[in-house]
Amino acid sequence: MITAVQKPFEEIYQNIKGIEKLLVLGCGSCVTVCMAGGEKEVEILSSSIRLANRQNGLSMEVAEGTIERQCDREFFDSAKKMIDEADAVISMACGVGVQFLAEEFKGKVVFPALNTKFYGATDEQGVWSERCAGCGDCKLTDFGGICPVARCSKSLMNGPCGGSSEGMCEVDPETTPCGWQLIFDRMKELGQLEKLEKTHPPVDWSSGRDGGPGRIIREDVKL
């Protein structure tokens, strides 16, 4: 899933100064799972804004809503009326949802409430960690199912750097394991250490972010 965390309240609150009718719109997918932008968070943020307004003597109507996904147009239908009525919308979706909402409702001011982080998995309730960097050219076959692009801080393809110490990465030795240590341990477990002797040429990053905004066109499924 796409993970995200909520922005500091102050930052969100600065954006909406002077707005008279505000809608806080949650997203019922990834960001609900990672507890950043679902219905519960919408409720908390809306209440927070109303309380802050009262404290500051501001009058602002704050409406709340949550839709299934903000990355599919059809789902906006159920919230269309609310969005139309609002002067501005705080989207509690990931960056995709915020933009899609803005695109869909031209002329509507849309603010993000979250900082979108990464494609990650739930380690345990309250702990999420990155697994995929969306490079567009999956190399997991060669590395025992552990991605050097996402798991190595430097995205090195041919072994660890000198900053790997006792299994941890120099970028954050407290919590981040060295991706290459993980790869090595895993390949050893699988008895495939010889696979790591293969030298990987420099990566062509153009399949991912460096090739410009991504786009997938599937003629077979297009209507």
Partner: peptide, 11 residues
Amino acid sequence: LEVGLILKCLE
């Protein structure tokens, strides 16, 4: 108890 409930009461 939920955070939302607490804030609603304050509201």
